[in-house]
Amino acid sequence: MTRHIDEEKNLIVRHTKIELLEHWLIALSGLVLFVTGLFEMPFAKRYYISSVPGLGWSEDYIVTLNVHYAAAIVFVGTSLFHVIYHLARGDRGLIPRKGDFKASLQVIKSFFGAGEEPRFDKYLPEQRLAYIGMAFINFMLIMSGLVKTYKNLYAPDMSYGIVLTATWIHNIFFVLFFLAFLAHIGAIVIKPNRPLVRGIFTGKVRLDYARVRHPIWLEELEKGTKDG
């Protein structure tokens, strides 16, 4: 068996420490970006959020922009790290494959009792699709955010067309980010996915669960063709 499996404790390593760190840095900084992005709208004062003790800062656009920037440093830096690090390692587990869309429909049907789930690899087909979707949303937010930051610092008189494009991309993908976040959290509500939740906190999931639901992953680990 591989070093990823602990038969005694009935656990298998699903995420490395680096992957956990990447996930949580992106998730938490993303949430801070979302909240401070909302506060960049004239929102906190109107809706009395800034009247809540401890949240007085939320109506100060300069303070919220600074917090937004601080979170953006983590979000952008970690996102770039993620892409480069996994490219360098040749990780392909989360890249969508041919047939993922069809397989995802089959999985969704199975949640409603229509048919059986297919045999899974480490990641579910809809996880791979969701990953690429989220990656695209983050990419658009990062690119438009960088343009806006550059404009704030160095080029307030940048072409109005570019400014408007960046702004509206940022605003539209801000909404899509929120919807994707809801869908991501919503996936936990689905009972068969729940054993995966401990994985994103501890890095490990139950081995008996993995054997039943992710047999392809286990087979490849045991053959030694895959690294975690």
Binding site: I18, I62, L65, N66, Y69, A70, A72, I73, V76, G77, T78, S79, L80, F81, H82, V83, I84, Y85, H86, L87, A88, R89, I142, G145, L146, T149, Y150, N152, L153
Partner: peptide
Amino acid sequence: ITDPLGKVVLFSPLVGAVVGIAAGWKRR
């Protein structure tokens, strides 16, 4: 007062990429 962090934001993709290359190479 937001300028210093804004400048770091513009620099952060480069830092992330460099650290990513170093960590990926080390892991390999």
